[in-house]
Simulated scan of single mutants.
Amino acid sequence: MITLERQSILNSEISAADSRLEIFAAMKRVAHEFGFRHITLFAATRADETLLSRMIVETTLPVSYVQEFDRRRLLKLCPVAPIISKSALPYCWSIDDPESVRGFPVPVEMDELQRRYDIITSVAMAVHSIDGGRFMLRFDGVRHRLSQVELNEIGMIVLHAFDVFDKIRRSARTGTAGPLTTRELEVVRWTAQGKTSSEIGRILSLSDHTVNAYMTNAIKKLDCVNRTQLVAKALRLRLIV
Rank of each mutant, 00 (worst) to 15 (best):
K195S: 05
C92M: 11
L51G: 09
K86A: 00
L52V: 05
K221E: 04
V225M: 07
L230N: 01
I154P: 06
L10E: 02
I14E: 09
R20W: 06
T174L: 15
N217R: 13
S129D: 01
L52K: 05
E58G: 00
M215C: 07
L222D: 10
F135G: 00
E112L: 15
V108W: 05
L113V: 14
D97R: 13
R202P: 00
I157G: 04
L137W: 12
F135Q: 00
T176M: 14
D70P: 11
S85N: 07
N152M: 15
I130M: 00
T121V: 10
F139D: 03
V101G: 06
R54S: 01
L235Y: 04
F162C: 02
T181F: 07
P82T: 13
R6V: 02
G132H: 01
I157F: 12
V57F: 02
R116F: 15
L204W: 08
L89A: 06
F162N: 02
I2Y: 13
R173K: 13
Y65E: 08
V187W: 08
I23C: 06
M215Y: 07
D166P: 07
K233Y: 03
T50Q: 11
Q148H: 09
A88T: 15
D131N: 00
E22G: 05
T121A: 05
E186M: 09
N152V: 15
E186W: 07
H38P: 02
L180S: 04
F162G: 02
F69N: 09
I56H: 06
V127D: 00
L230A: 01
D96R: 14
I2L: 12
I200F: 00
L113T: 14
P179V: 11
E22Y: 09
F162D: 01
M110F: 11
C92Q: 10
Y91V: 00
M215A: 09
G103I: 14
T3C: 01
F139Y: 10
P90M: 11
R173P: 02
A88S: 15
P62V: 05
M125E: 00
A172E: 12
V149G: 04
S171L: 05
A88H: 14
V211H: 03
R72E: 07
D223E: 08
R183C: 10
R71Q: 14
A213K: 14
L204R: 08
H32L: 14
H38S: 07
A192F: 04
D48H: 10
D118P: 04
L239N: 10
A43I: 07
G35W: 15
D131S: 00
V30C: 06
G178N: 03
R173T: 06
